[in-house]
Simulated scan of single mutants.
Amino acid sequence: MIFTVYGLAAAIVAGCTLFFRRRSRFLAVIFPLWFVLAVVIDQTGVFPVAGTWVAGDFLRFVMFGALMSLPIIGYAALPVLAPEARAALSAAPLWGLAGLQIYRIGGVAFFFALQDGLMPAVLALTAGILDVFIAVSALGVAYLLSRGLGHRTAIAWNLIGLTDLMIAILLVAASIFGLLSLSPAPSAIGQSPFVLISLFQLPLAVIAHIEMLRRLLGAPPGGDAQGA
């Protein structure tokens, strides 16, 4: 399963690097660097013990959350810090952004973690089922958008995708803050391959969903309903 998650992430990096190679050197370099950093941290691990919280995990969680947030903050800052990169991202077709999410099939890792007793059922089933749903429906949504159809469907699909990610984050946060008693504790989220999922695939999914919604809803800047 680890090799599957790594393979999916590597395929994403290769595809995005090729797409942005002539459109934005900044993004063409950022994707491989982002991936390598996520792999290094995945191999190191964040939470040392699976199934329970131990001393120091709260601070690790804060740092983990900050690392997850950095790419999303960078995306929000692109119009100011890297207008060229912002324009290149806006040139990515909506159907491509939708099809990209097929990598969420890696969410089956949550089912394996549940089977091994490493993840609480509420987190594993919610994240696993919704991830797989987004993955298997991604090509259908991409096809509709490539034909200039399905905008309302795409909006609903993106909202479901974001809800999936937010539920997972909130469940882990509620557990470590003691607001929700989960057994086992979802500390395996800080071990391989879930660190790679959390630091690379998850922020990328958030960015893709937000970018699609921004353009589907006609939000500025850039008038980006292009590529629909």
Rank of each mutant, 00 (worst) to 15 (best):
L145K: 10
A127K: 00
A168D: 11
L97R: 11
P32N: 06
L114W: 03
A87H: 08
S69R: 06
F61W: 13
P71Y: 06
I155R: 00
A228E: 11
W53E: 12
A113S: 15
T163N: 03
V13I: 15
A76W: 07
T126D: 10
M63K: 06
Y143M: 12
S183G: 03
G117V: 02
E84L: 10
S198R: 01
A121M: 15
A185G: 07
L18M: 09
L100V: 03
A87W: 09
L94K: 15
S24M: 15
G74H: 08
G161V: 04
P193H: 09
L162Y: 02
L179F: 15
S137N: 13
A38L: 02
A168S: 13
L217D: 03
A92K: 04
Q191V: 00
S24Y: 14
S181M: 09
L130Y: 14
C16S: 12
A138S: 14
F133H: 14
V62L: 14
S187Y: 10
I169A: 14
L125A: 06
P48K: 01
L125Q: 03
V206L: 03
P83F: 02
Q226A: 08
M212E: 06
V172Q: 07
E84H: 03
S24C: 12
D116W: 00
L89N: 10
V54C: 08
L162C: 06
L114M: 04
F19I: 07
M1R: 07
